[in-house]
Design a protein around this nucleic acid. Structure first.
Lengths: 319, 319
DNA sequence: CACTTGCGGCCAGGTCCTGGCCGCAATTCG
DNA sequence: CGAATTGCGGCCAGGACCTGGCCGCAAGTG
């Protein structure tokens, strides 16, 4: 029954755009009797969506938070906003959320109408400017193409620039994407070399689905993250910073709320701040961003980096 | 019809998690005959979802991008990822996307199951650390509560700290949220003072829905953005920076892709960078973040800020 | 207390769903 | 080229489901 199912979807959509809906209005919008609305609501409830109702004048229906996610019915703008948000989230280094963001993004982009896709890429370029990050960034386009190929077991072709700078064309059976810290790796079976390889995403260009499907192979060891870690052999060491800020924790919270959660109060005019990152430059900048005077206890390289940064800024300031 | 509609939704969900589905497998998963699958697919098409099919061995169904958004069927992790992404997008200053992100977020949070909500807030706190922004930030919680109250025409109660520091309790009929640059304003009818007011979100605390609904009033002039602009009377002046970077545009693009789009090449070893922001501190940090030597032409305050920052870092580096 | 709004039983007429069967078309593979 | 796989959709029959209308009931609101 295409009409009934469609109406149910419409009803769900209406219930998501506003909180309270009198049955009368729903009936008018969906062009059915109020009796049918009651029945539709009953159906939604049967499907597990918690629709609450209140009686009396000003009563109506309301979709509440339940135990499972109902299908999200988004309008164009909202879809675009979500896509943009996910792109930045997937591209950023936000411990533990990237892979999932990516999966959601792939799902969304699969069905994203073309005109919306154009808006997303346009907006994404515009916003990239304002979301600085340390180190080489990865194009969200690349990410979604590869993630999609992994999901759909589709062969992939791309250009790769090895560590020594040598360029080559690859054809692979994609297996998975792995995110460590702020870098993306791509685990795949290299068809030409007949072997498993890991590729760094920022060295990879113009990925395109080759169209051919394949039977997934078993990755030795099973866990792609472990596989990448093994092949990485200890690059990207993390730096653990311990710093005293010359301000109370409350002051820090006021100026830079994002830093407060890693602050331990010492006394009324200072607190200890801890942070870790694989990039010393970024670590130094984060400290500078807090906006209060500070003193670096460790590591020494961070102190040096602060000095370098100071020189650069001093030079700029003196000009 | 609950079973047919439910199956249609399940089918849609399956089609979103992977690209190709042989009819045989769909039939097995949904526990109906292949004939019924064919009919369900037909129904989806009738509802406007572009389901493509390919014949032959290795054939199957595939949900493609159409002209309208189908309902998104998300699993728990994906919902969390989207919520987190939207929260940062709404809190950040990403010209033009915040209001919409916020609307999508309100829609999502309305139906977000409690256990997922907990995960979102937890993650959000954790990630906030890595998404620094200049100036006072706004709690996404606050943002969604207010946006929801605006949408649902529900009275709102909150504490407000005026410019002169005086604290007061307010009860208002919320009208709209306005985002300018990197700041949020809230336009509402103040019930106690019987007048329209704009509030700065970062001065507002503990907003709670009062429960009472109201008939929306007409905002004089109609446009909330214009209303805010009128009442703002030229605060938050923007600083326009003009800087020479001591590196080629290509080098900048390599180190900090986000900055490249605002670079104009001068010669092989330098390029001009332009940026504007209401916060001098943030402007200086953005320059530092590019990671190359530079020289500030204007404004003078930016030069001074660089000097201040340099001193702070020098002190930290020397320690 | 009157009024509004949701709830759900009951009814009758008509529509739609499902599984099975079939011939057809497109594609892949040997 | 021919066999096999997969999707398409007509047809059928039995049964289940939908809809609108009507009603008495319960629960808020003023």
């Amino acid at each position: 029954m295409t009409v009934t199912s469609g109406r149910l979807l419409q009803l769900l959509s209406l219930l998501q755009t506003r909180r309270d809906w009198p049955g009368e209005e729903l009936a008018r919008r969906l062009e059915v009797s109020r009796r049918t609305i009651r029945r539709d609501v009953e159906r939604l409830r049967e499907l597990g969506y918690p629709v609450q109702a209140t009686t009396g004048p000003d009563g109506g229906y309301r979709l509440e938070a339940g135990t499972a996610m109902p299908p999200l019915l988004l309008d164009d703008d909202e879809a675009v906003a979500i896509a943009v948000g996910l792109r930045t989230a997937a591209g950023a280094f936000v411990d533990g959320i990237e892979e999932t963001s990516l999966r959601a993004l792939v799902k969304l982009e699969q069905v994203l109408p073309a005109h919306l896709r154009r808006r997303v890429t346009a907006l994404n370029e515009a916003t990239a400017t304002l979301a600085p990050s340390a180190g080489p960034t990865v194009d969200p386009e690349t990410l979604t193409i590869i993630a999609g190929a992994c999901r759909d077991h589709e062969c992939l072709r791309f250009a790769y620039r090895a560590k020594d700078g040598v360029e080559s064309r690859r054809v692979v059976e994609p297996h998975s994407l792995v995110n460590t810290g702020n870098r993306w790796y791509f685990v795949a079976w290299d068809c030409d070399r007949d072997a498993w390889r890991t590729f760094r995403l920022d060295r990879l260009e113009r990925p395109t689905a080759a169209g051919r499907r394949f039977q997934p192979r078993q990755l030795p060891g099973g866990d792609p993250a472990a596989f990448v870690a093994r092949n990485l052999s200890g690059s990207a060491p993390r730096h653990e910073a311990r710093v005293t800020l010359r301000a109370s924790k409350a002051e820090v919270a006021l100026r830079s709320p994002w830093a407060a959660s890693q602050c331990e109060p010492i006394d009324a005019v200072s607190c200890e701040y801890r942070a870790s990152d694989s990039s010393i430059e970024w670590l130094a900048l984060r400290l500078a961003m807090i906006g209060v005077d500070f003193e670096v206890h460790e590591p020494a390289v961070l102190r040096e980096e602060c000095g370098r940064l100071a020189e650069r800024l001093a030079a700029a300031g003196a000009a």
